[in-house]
């Protein structure tokens, strides 16, 4: 289907090819920046080698890690190996960097997914309420709350959560991932009660920012939809207000919200770096922060390359889907 459309529309093909080429260019620039930058920082030799080691030992380790070669050569090997899926081995763990990151990916994904779920469950009802009764006191409180949610620094709220729910009340654990259950071949802490109790606080913390933005989106959408003819029509048919809101408004509001939130899923993964550090959640984000502390170059480079690749291709896919869905999106060279 997609290919048929592509063949039919050569301009579309050209557009996608340009975008693809741009993505590759961005990746290349990023690889230069990341590799070049990381190589200027600190001296991993000093960090990694026992200070009491003799000169021969130091030289052996430098050779082993390839640190004695010129930077350009190191970069070339890095590029060639990156294509083979080999992004070097961690100085600290002695394991392939890619493997380390992939091992921690599920923890980050489950945190992001669960917080997406929480934010939708909380924000959509509040947003509909605020859009439906724009002048009520409660709506003003909700909207003020959403500005506050935008202004509150995520990490600080996380600290407050830990202080209240973990330290003072002792209701929920504040560190780690807890017990991990298996369901349909997937390992996740969402499948055990203990795991859920661990994921709850970090996920709520990560959701906070999303909650604010989804409330605003939902409210704006509801205010628009409520004025539409089909709502008036539904009301004139004698349908109860409850049904109008729960069926007609909700259904129409969900499409744009799910689209936007789905497209912004990447930002949850980016922001999880902060939440993971606060709650000692063993995901990719905590790994990169720890690696930066330890000057673990291969892991830093691998993480940045993986996350940049992820975002570049996510954006490419979004762009392509948009052009198919919305013909108004301007395509260069298309002056019809």
């Amino acid at each position: 289907m997609l290919w048929f459309l592509l063949l039919k529309n050569s301009k579309m093909t050209a557009f996608i090819c340009t975008r693809f080429a741009q993505s590759i260019l961005v990746l290349f620039i990023m690889s230069l920046l990341v590799f070049g930058g990381v190589n200027l920082v600190g001296d991993p030799v000093e960090m990694l080698i026992n200070p009491e080691a003799d000169q021969a030992e130091v030289e052996r380790v430098i050779r082993e890690l390839g640190l004695d070669r010129p930077v350009t050569e190191q970069y070339w090997y890095f590029l060639v190996n990156a294509f083979k899926g080999d992004l070097g081995s961690s100085f600290i763990f002695g394991e392939p960097a890619l493997k380390l990151i992939i091992q921690r990916m599920p923890a980050t994904l489950e945190l992001a997914l669960f917080s997406l779920f929480i934010s939708l469950i909380i924000a959509i009802p509040l947003g509909i309420y605020a859009g439906y009764n724009p002048d009520s006191k409660a709506s003003k409180v909700i909207m003020a709350g959403s500005i506050l949610g935008f202004s509150m620094p995520t990490f600080w709220v996380g600290i407050i959560f830990i202080m209240i729910f973990a330290v003072q009340l002792g209701w929920l654990p504040s560190t780690g991932r807890g017990e991990i259950g298996t369901f349909m071949g997937i390992n996740s802490s969402l499948f055990t009660l203990n795991g859920l109790s661990h994921v709850f606080l970090p996920a709520l913390n990560l959701a906070l920012f999303k909650i604010s933005s989804v409330i605003r989106l939902t409210r704006a959408g509801t205010r628009e939809i409520i004025l539409q003819d089909y709502i008036t029509f539904a009301r004139s048919k004698g349908i109860s207000e409850k049904r109008v809101v729960l069926i007609h408004v909700l259904k129409n509001i969900l499409i744009p919200i799910v689209t936007v939130v789905g497209l912004e899923f990447g930002s949850l993964i980016a922001f999880s770096t902060v939440t993971e550090t606060v709650f000692a959640w063993p995901g990719m984000g905590k790994l990169i922060i720890d690696s930066i502390y330890n000057l673990d170059r291969p892991v830093i480079v691998a993480y940045l390359m993986i996350i940049v690749t992820f975002f570049v291709f996510l954006n490419l896919i979004v762009d392509i889907i948009y052009t198919f869905l919305d013909p108004r999106v301007r395509i260069k060279g298309d002056h019809q």
Partner: peptide
């Protein structure tokens, strides 16, 4: 456009992770 497609924290993270 390309830059705005990355979350701000990620852009800052890339710079600071790469350059210290």
């Amino acid at each position: 456009d390309i830059q705005l497609s990355f979350p701000s924290i990620l852009v800052a993270l890339i710079i600071l992770a790469a350059f210290g």
